[in-house]
Structure formats: structure tokens, C-alpha cells
Design a binder for these strands. Sequence first.
DNA 1: TTAACGTACTAAAACGTTTGAGAAAAGATT
DNA 2: AATCTTTTCTCAAACGTTTTAGTACGTTAA
Lengths: 341, 341
Amino acid sequence: MSRNSVSLKDISKACGVSIATVSKALNDHSDIGQDTKENIRRVAEELGYHPNAAAQALKTKRTNNIGVLFVDEANSGLTHDYFSHVLDSFKRCAEQNGFDITFINADKTRPDNMSYLTHAMYRGFDGVVIACVDFFDPQVDELINSTIPVVTIDHIFYNRIAIISDNARGMRDLVSYVYRMGHRKIAYIHGLESSVTRARLASYYRTLQDFGITVPDEYVLAVPYRDSEAAYRATLKLLSLPEPPTCILYPDDFSAFGGINALSEKGLRIPDDISIAGYDGTEIASRVIPKLTTIAQDTEGIGKAAAERLIDMINNPKAALIEQVVIEGKLEPGGTVGKPA
Amino acid sequence: MSRNSVSLKDISKACGVSIATVSKALNDHSDIGQDTKENIRRVAEELGYHPNAAAQALKTKRTNNIGVLFVDEANSGLTHDYFSHVLDSFKRCAEQNGFDITFINADKTRPDNMSYLTHAMYRGFDGVVIACVDFFDPQVDELINSTIPVVTIDHIFYNRIAIISDNARGMRDLVSYVYRMGHRKIAYIHGLESSVTRARLASYYRTLQDFGITVPDEYVLAVPYRDSEAAYRATLKLLSLPEPPTCILYPDDFSAFGGINALSEKGLRIPDDISIAGYDGTEIASRVIPKLTTIAQDTEGIGKAAAERLIDMINNPKAALIEQVVIEGKLEPGGTVGKPA
DNA sequence: TTAACGTACTAAAACGTTTGAGAAAAGATT
DNA sequence: AATCTTTTCTCAAACGTTTTAGTACGTTAA
């Protein structure tokens, strides 16, 4: 009800025992009598005791708090569909293990002007999870090379555990699918330079090569992620080619909607006149008509794997096994890919 | 580079002054000589000192940390479009004022089994912001009635500052708009019982009344928020009425997409055969064709107002002025409302 | 000359925990 | 009866800060 603050000392007085005894009783140490424990716990409950995280952290060097650094192009991972789903899953898993999560500041205008690492050390995070568009930010680098347990998402560092969505496989599945649907002129509007983009792009070329297809350079364009305006313009560019593609792949579902706008503006029907596919498997993609063909990323699995590995590492720093955990996506055939016209 | 931990003591040794002097120098107290201050700061920098949040919190009872309780139907506000945008804005503003944000657990399965209030006190949050679907959860109630500074979003308590989106105004604007477009048979698929729903529903009836329109009871249906399946079914139900509506309003943009599916399945064209509107102003709403007519909620303004008020209250608990801050939305006319057929 | 004052510093307690070392009492072993 | 164990508890230091009261010393006013 109120913002009281009953401490171990209060309980110790009420029970007529020492503070140490109270602490041990509440932490279930073996050197406290059963009846004493019960009494102390009862009184603690009555008094409305709850521990003080700051004092515990000061003493034990454990905060049960995990730092989250999710930063996208807009300097916020929160409104980013993919990130927010991963984060939600991460959060859930962390909470089930008794950890809270706190954001590592993404706003560089904060008054104390701390770097990511400084901030993480200030708060004493037991571990840190990073999902980032720009893994080459020096501040990110500093954090990666610290001694704080770190798990990265969608980017591999030689000295860190990484959880990565299987972009190569996803892209291969997608390209194979549209190939099987009969497409040969497959354009790819991809995201800006990042390890994710690189993996997908390589897989795109590789898969086409396996099918014996070569695409003209004009079929491959770069736009920022989730920028439907840019995707719109890129799409128009593709359409203006002397030999336009019959199928366009987008870096994400959101961009695909930008593409759809361009196509419908040009009077092209999907999938009769032209086929398209997105990437991510956002909820909205499955709610529009026709459903967007896309690769559903396993955000649940990614978040959970990240949390599990990080907590492992926190609880067992010695056994820190550097590994890459690859999480498979899943092709979601919608109605936006048909036979080529 | 490493997870060192240089403390005031280390600096004091290096400078040959007392710990107190170091503390005061770094906090810019007036009773420390200018040159001493400079020297201490230089050494602190060299040694890579950064303060310890736990120790500071223990001593000062300030954590510079704000607890966030955002819980939606799925027990997570993170993937909720409206919430996540509000939170993003809140976070940004809080960070600019030197506050971090930590989630108050939404997962009731956490091992220590703390209530929201217990959790908040354990972490020593300086304040708490609550956006919630169920403000009648006893745990929420407990938190509201604690002495911790609280700001609520979209729900008014007599003893708390509330930031509320102007749902009455938004609904009035929307209904007036479709009325002006010629519609008289206006159905409303609304969300489940909540103060937001109540405000909108009342405004819907009130506005229609002002226009001298009465709607049959069958025109008003309830579905959960953001449940496009339910909205799909509700839409079919409306279409099967002997005298179906010419315009359907949905509780949110996402539901509207469910409605669109039902309509297109029935071969109805939007807006030629039937008109629809959403609510929220999600990004995707403006990226589809035709653009979804909707009320854009000022999530930026809501989050910012919440953070500002909360921080005010934290810094100046005495002056706690209980108020309701109303944030206006904005009608975004898209292409889904036309003249009635 | 003495008291009053201002400046620049320090000592030490306090915040609420945890924990290893030790102590006291009771029970078990010779 | 003396010694060893076991059980149950307490002492006290420590974690890294902040802050109040106080000290030492030089300067100024009477």
C-alpha cells in the first residue's frame, strides 16, 4: 500500500535474532533451524518485507538485470516489427528465469553521455543482448569486446555467441519457390549493407546460379529496410527496364507494400501480371488479400535462444561455449506469387 | 575494455585525497578547490572510473530508473503497435532526462512471484508508467494506490495523473467525416470493454444522435482489439443483415484489414460498394492501396507527455498536480471511405 | 590581539545486504 | 569425563557511495 521500506534489521528486531540469521533464513541457508526459518518468513511476510535490489547488487555483484541494445535505422528497435517480436520473446524467457530487462540507451543525447559499455557497467548488467543494424559502431565494438556476457543477434563475432536467422536458407527457399512457380526473371530489392543483407544476397546469386540463371545487374537494387517509399521508387525503376522482371523480391514485408503500390499504380495485377514476395512474416502480411508470400522468421525462437544462451553464460561464465545458433525461417506461400504472365 | 571496477577509493588513493573529496569533486560541490576538482576529474577519466548505480541508489534512494508496465491482451505490450510507439516516445524522452527504463514484469510465472508493486519497490523505480488493457487487475490497483509516482495512459484514476488520447473527439471526427461523405448506415465494430472503448462508443452514439441518426442494435458489435479474425467474422455478420450498413468502423487498423478480407471475399469493392475506417493510424494503414481512412493517434505526444509529467512528479513530489492530459488525434482521410452506393 | 569568518578539506556514519569465521550449546563417541 | 561433532546462531567486515559535522588554516574585522 505504501512505499515503506522494511529491512532485514526490522525483521531481526521483531524476531529477536541477528540480521545475519534473517538473511540466511530468507535465503534458505542450511545453518538455520527449521522453526526459526519459518518464524522469520512469517514475520517478513507480515511486515511486508521485500529485498532491496540495490543493496543486493552492491554486495553480490549480481543485478538479475539484462541490458538490451536494439537499435534500428531510426535509433529505436521498439517499433521495428522484427526486433520487437524478438525482444518480446527474449523478455518472456528472461523473466521466467528471474531476470529483468533494461534498455541500454540508444539516445546519444542523454545528459551523462555514457557509452554503451559505460552504461552497461554503470547499471551492472549481468549480461547484454545486442541486435543492431550497425554492428560497426565503435561503441558496439567496445561493448562486444568487454568482459560482460554478450549475445548478438544476426551478426557473428569470433568471440561471441550469436543467434542468427538462417537468411541463406530462407533466401534459397524463396528463390527456389518462385523458380518452381515458373519465374526466371527474378529481381531482388535488398536492404542496405549488413551481414543479413550479405547473407541473403549471396544466397540469391548462389541459388540462381544453381538453377543456371543469370540476372542483369539492374535487377538488383538496394534500399533501406522498411522504407516503403524507397521500395516504391525502386520498383518503378525495375518496371521501366526494357525487360522488366516477372517477380520482385523485397527486403521485408513492409517494403513489399511499397512495391505493391507502385505496381497497382502501373495497373499491374498481382499475381496475374507480376509476382512479389516479402520477408519477415509480419502479421499484417497474412491479413491482406492476397496474402503476401514471405519468409516467416522465427522471432520466437530467436528471442528464446538468445535469452537461454545469455543466461547460461551468466550462470556459468567458465563454460562459455562460443557458438552460432542458426534459427530456421519458414516459407509462407501467400497469393502474391503466381505463374509468370 | 575490461570489466574493471575502479571506485572512488582508487581515485582517492591516486590523488592523495579522501574519498569524500573525490565524491564531492565529481559531483561538483562548492567546497572543493578548483584545481583539486580538475585533477580528480582527470585521474577519474584516466582510470576509467564510472559510478556504481547500485551504491548510488542504496545511498540516495534514487535509481534514475523508471518502471514500465505495458500489458495488452497477449500479456505483452511490446508487439502492440499503438503501445510500442507510445513506449518508444516515452523512452526517448525519459532517456533525454537521464532515466533508464525497465519493464515491470508481465509474466506471472516468474520464479520469485512478485506482484507489480513488490517488483517496483524491489527495483526502487523512481516512478512508473502504466498502459494497460485491464486496469482492474488487483495488482494494477495495488500499484496505483502505492506512494510511487505513477502516470497512467488511457485510463483515469482520481488520484493519479493520466494521459489520455482524445477518443471522444477522434470518434466524433470520424463519424462526422463519414456522415459528410453521405453515409447514414454506419456500423461500429468496437473493442471489448475498457475505458477507451467506452469513450469511443459513447461518442459514436452521441454524434449520430446529433445528426439525428439512430442505428439498429445489430450495427454495433464487439470484438477483441487487433483480432482481425474476429473482425472478419463480425463483418460477415453485418453483411448478412437484411439492411447492411454502408460504412463500417473498426476498433483499430489491424481489425480493419480483417474486415477488408471479408468484404473482398463477398465481392464488395472499397470504397465503391462499401466504406470502412480503422483507428490508430498505423504506418501500414497509409501504405496500402487504397489508404485506410483512420484516426491517427498521437503516440509521440502521448509518450512524451507521460514521460514529462512523470519526471516532473519524480523531481517534485510535493507539487504533484493531479491532472488529465488529453492528447488529440488526427483524422487521416484515406481512400476507403467514399459516397454510399 | 582576538574573535569571527571563509575556504578547502577529512572523518565517519549510513544505506541494506551477504558471508566467512567463529561461538555456544547440545548430542554423540570414546 | 573428556573430546569430538553437529546444529544453530552471531559478529563484523565488506560492497561503493553520499553527506553531516567537524578540523585546520589563512584572512579579515574589531
